[in-house]
Structure formats: structure tokens, C-alpha cells
Design a protein around this nucleic acid. Structure first.
Length: 332
DNA sequence: TATGTATGGTAAC
DNA sequence: TTACCCTACATAT
């Protein structure tokens, strides 16, 4: 899932393809039928991403709030204008979307025509191939518009040229401007929303007075926005910090360092679409890390394997229902 | 076909 | 702390 970087990438897609355009909305699955009816026919006017949540504004002060949760994803089809700040997108056109490549690389369907993009939970992009029509010579069926609905689609947003399907979100609801403001007010700082220095002060002040472990605090969206289980494990390793240390016992400079590292990793994540946390590697290792999801992290998902730095076996434990990976030697 | 797992979060106990 | 929600896919049977 989508940790904070994915949501910022999605927001950029909406900014490019939906903001300023009239939208037709529907809920093929039926679970957001009323909301879709409220949205349909309105023009999207703005989009905001804060932490793991996205807010899409429509005419007359109506906002759509979406939280992807662990399984959610947006699938884009049709004309997809790629934000120039999303580096990897164009270079990957036509490439097969492998499982686990998080995010947002446009790919071609079997006919080599429509480009499809999925941003969110790791999953195969949905490629619509019409086998039966192929045999009867209706080759153009692959360009069907709007695209056929596949699977459970909570919300479909359609402009003249672009289709966005939302599936599996934890939250999908309409909000008033006050409700949006209240939701955002509860969230901790997001480096791509808040002034970075102010964010550092807020984050540091909160962490430094909490008895809660730093491992839990990094995952707390009220303390800092956008960090999930992968970035949590990686940030702590990069800082060589024991996840169990109470926040108030972590040296101030270390807390500030965690924030600054999050600023850096988030920027890399938004740019590349991948949770790349081994950015200071030699070129060959970097290439390998980018190519394979299993080589991309220091400790995340590496329980039982030797620490990349010291060789000690990486351990995993359960913390608040989530798996926490760390090296007991490097992070002693 | 059934089961387990996943980058998240909430509400109830 | 536990239960539960949401969806897709890999693995086991």
C-alpha cells in the first residue's frame, strides 16, 4: 500500500487529467452510488494529498476524500498525461508490469494501444483483452470506451478522455470544506504539504515528549503523515535506532535526522514510484535494488536473512498488529 | 477450492 | 488488545 509517496503520485495524475474537467461519476459496485450521483456532472476544481489521504474538490464546495488503506488502488485508462515530475513513467512505457513494482508506471495493453496505470496496492495492471471478438475480427474492441469494468470498482470517474477506477479503499466519502479542514488538522506534518522546517519542529516537539516507542510513533499519522510499515522499518535502520526506544529518550538530533530522512525518502518515492530506501549505494547495487523489490530494502521483509551491514540475522516482531523488522546489532 | 498474506485504520472490548 | 473491514493474488490442497 500505498504509503505517502503513492498518494502524492495519484494526486498529480488527477491534477493533470481531471482538474478543470467535467466528470461523470458512477459506482459500478454500488457501494458508493449516492456519492457518485452527487459528483456526477460536476467539474473537478482542485486536488490535495496529505499523508495517505487524497482530497478531490468539485464545484460548489463538495470534496471527495479517499484513503486507499492496505488494498486500495486507482487504475487509470485512456489518455493519461504524465506529470513531468514523475520521472520513471515515460521510460517504462511498454514494459510488462511485474507484480510488486508499486506504482504508476504506464504500460501497454496486449494490443499495444491504451496505456493503463495502476497506483496503489501491488497488483497486475488490468489489461482488457477481448478474446472472442479477436476471432471474429473485431480488433478494435480493445479500444472500447469507456473501458469495461473489471472486478469491484467502488468509484469510476470519467472525463471525455480519461478513466479512473477506484477499488478497495478504506475510505471513500464526500466532505464539506469544514470536514476536510478538520480531517487535515488532525494529521501530523507532511513534507510535501507543510513547510519543511515547521514540520521538523512539530514532529520533534511531539516525539520528544511521548513515552511511546519511536517505532510506533513513526507509524502514527497524527505525529507524522505518510509513513507506513516499509518506510518505518527503513527509516529506523538508516538512523540505526532501536524501535523500542521511547520517543522522549531519542536524542533530539536523531529525531530531527529522522524527519529530514523522511523528507528525502518521500521525494525519491514520489519521483520514482518506488519505496527506494538504499539510495546511497554504488551504481551497480542501485540498479539491482531498483530492478527487484526484494533487493530494495535494508531490513523490511528480510526476517531471517543476514543484515546487509553486519550480517546479524534480521528479526521480525509484532507491534500493534504490524510486522516490525530490524537488526538487533545495528539498531541496538 | 481454500487459506494466508499485504505498504492501513477504526471501533469495540 | 482484539475484531473487523476492504480486495487481489500466491500458495497449498
Amino acid at each position: 500500500m500505498p504509503e505517502g509517496h503513492s498518494v502524492h503520485r495519484i494526486a498529480r495524475q488527477f491534477d493533470r487529467n481531471f482538474v478543470g474537467r467535467a466528470v461523470t461519476a458512477s459506482s459500478p459496485q454500488g457501494r458508493f452510488a449516492e456519492g457518485a450521483a452527487m459528483l456526477s456532472g460536476r467539474t473537478a476544481t482542485a486536488v490535495r494529498a496529505v499523508g495517505k489521504q487524497m482530497f478531490l474538490e468539485f464545484d460548489d464546495d463538495l470534496w471527495l476524500r479517499v484513503h486507499l488503506g492496505m488494498y486500495g488502488a486507482w487504475d487509470f485508462a485512456g489518455e493519461i498525461l504524465v506529470d513531468p515530475t514523475i520521472a520513471s513513467a515515460n521510460g517504462r512505457m511498454g514494459q510488462t508490469n511485474q507484480r510488486g513494482t508499486d506504482l504508476g508506471e504506464p504500460i501497454r495493453d496486449a494490443a499495444g494501444e491504451n496505456s493503463l496505470t495502476s497506483i496503489g496496492a501491488p497488483r497486475r495492471a488490468r489489461v482488457h483483452v477481448r478474446m472472442s471478438e479477436q476471432t471474429t475480427g473485431l480488433a478494435d474492441e480493445g479500444d472500447e470506451w469507456p473501458p469495461p469494468v473489471v472486478g469491484q470498482v467502488r468509484l469510476r470517474l470519467l472525463t471525455e478522455a480519461t478513466c479512473a477506477d477506484l477499488r478497495g479503499p478504506t475510505a471513500c466519502e464526500l466532505q464539506t470544506p469544514d470536514e476536510v479542514a478538520a480531517t487535515i488538522a488532525k494529521l501530523g506534518p507532511d513534507p510535501l504539504v507543510d513547510d519543511v522546517s515547521e514540520g521538523e519542529e512539530r514532529f520533534t516537539a511531539v516525539v520528544r515528549r511521548k513515552p511511546t516507542s519511536i517505532g510506533l510513533l513513526l507509524m502514527d499519522q497524527n505525529v507524522v503523515s505518510g509513513i507506513g510499515n516499509v518506510y518505518r522499518a527503513e527509516l529506523l535502520f538508516r538512523a540505526r535506532q532501536n524501535p523500542h526506544t521511547p520517543g522522549r529518550d531519542v536524542p533530539e538530533e536523531v529525531v530531527r535526522g529522522l524527519w529530514r530522512d523522511w523528507v528525502r525518502l518521500l521525494a525519491i518515492g514520489v519521483e520514482t514510484g518506488q519505496m527506494m530506501t538504499m539510495d546511497d549505494l554504488d551504481p551497480e547495487s542501485y540498479r539491482r535494488a531498483m530492478a527487484s523489490r526484494d533487493d530494495r530494502h535494508w531490513v523490511y521483509h528480510r526476517a531471517g536473512l543476514p543484515c546487509r551491514v553486519c550480517g546479524t540475522t534480521v528479526v521480525v516482531e509484532e507491534a500493534a498488529g504490524r510486522k516490525l523488522y530490524w537488526c538487533p546489532s545495528c539498531q541496538a
